[in-house]
Simulated assay, not measured.
Amino acid sequence: MKIKIINTSNHQLPHYETLASAGMDLRANITEPITLKSLERAIVPTGIFIELPVGYEAQVRPRSGLAAKKGITVLNAPGTVDADYRGEVGVILTNLSSEDFIIENGERIAQMVIAKHERAEWTEVDSLSETDRGTGGFGSTGVK
């Protein structure tokens, strides 16, 4: 699939690191470092603008290494870039650790997954079909 992109940064285009990668890394496009203190959040610009085909979205997700090693995550994970959005792709990063985290220009801060989606139509009914689980949720199936 071909996706139109404008890159206003000095960084390479997002790309897949391996043949089997689902996501492409997004890089910070900033003029000076951003310090994220504990529990702070910031919208970090990427310098890219995309045009997706209708029926697709770009999901912005955390990078597992930043999350595991530094406590840095995407606050609204996964963030969605809709097909009709034409603004700059920004990443809402938050620092869940107790230490400051400095974001440098060009740093890989998140990953983007392009995903096909369907549009749903609601059908209002008076009842739903029965299942073994029923209305059990939020841990009702156990942990082991």
Rank of each mutant, 00 (worst) to 15 (best):
I72L: 09
V60E: 05
A22N: 15
Q59W: 08
H117I: 15
F138L: 08
V60Q: 03
S140Q: 02
A120D: 14
A58P: 11
S97T: 03
K70S: 05
Q12M: 15
T141W: 04
R27L: 06
V81Q: 13
N29A: 02
R108V: 05
E88V: 11
Q111F: 07
D100M: 00
E104L: 04
I92W: 11
I5D: 14
E51M: 15
S38N: 03
T135N: 07
P62I: 12
K144L: 07
L36H: 01
E121T: 09
G87Q: 11
R63N: 10
T80S: 01
D25H: 13
I6E: 15
I48A: 12
I34V: 04
S21Y: 05
N7E: 13
P53T: 08
I103C: 05
F101R: 01
I50M: 14
G139Q: 07
N7I: 12
Y85N: 15
I48M: 14
D82F: 14
L36R: 00
H11T: 09
E99S: 11
S9E: 01
L52E: 14
T80W: 10
R61D: 08
S21Q: 09
G23S: 10
N10R: 01
E104F: 10
N76G: 03
Q12K: 15
M1K: 13
T94E: 06
E121R: 00
G87E: 14
I34Y: 00
Q111N: 03
V113E: 04
D82Q: 12
E124N: 09
L66K: 11
A110I: 12
V91T: 02
R27Q: 07
T141M: 01
T94H: 00
G23Y: 13
R133S: 13
S38K: 01
T46M: 03
T31W: 02
D126R: 14
N29T: 00
Q12Y: 12
E124W: 10
P78W: 05
A115H: 08
I30V: 08
T80V: 06
S38G: 00
A68D: 08
L93E: 05
M112E: 14
A77Y: 07
L26Y: 12
T31C: 09
R27E: 12
K4M: 05
K69R: 15
P53A: 05
T123W: 11
K2Q: 14
T141V: 00
S64D: 06
Y16E: 07
S98T: 01
S9T: 02
K144E: 14
G71Q: 09
V91P: 01
E57V: 05
S97N: 01
S64R: 05
Q59N: 04
E99H: 12
T31I: 11
M24R: 07
L66H: 06
L36N: 05
G90Q: 03
D100V: 02
S21P: 06
I30Y: 06
H11E: 15
N95K: 02
N29K: 03
I30K: 05
L36M: 02
T94F: 08
G87M: 13
I48K: 10
P53M: 04
L52G: 13
M112F: 10
I50S: 15
I43R: 03
L96W: 01
A110K: 10
E104N: 12
R63I: 04
G90R: 04
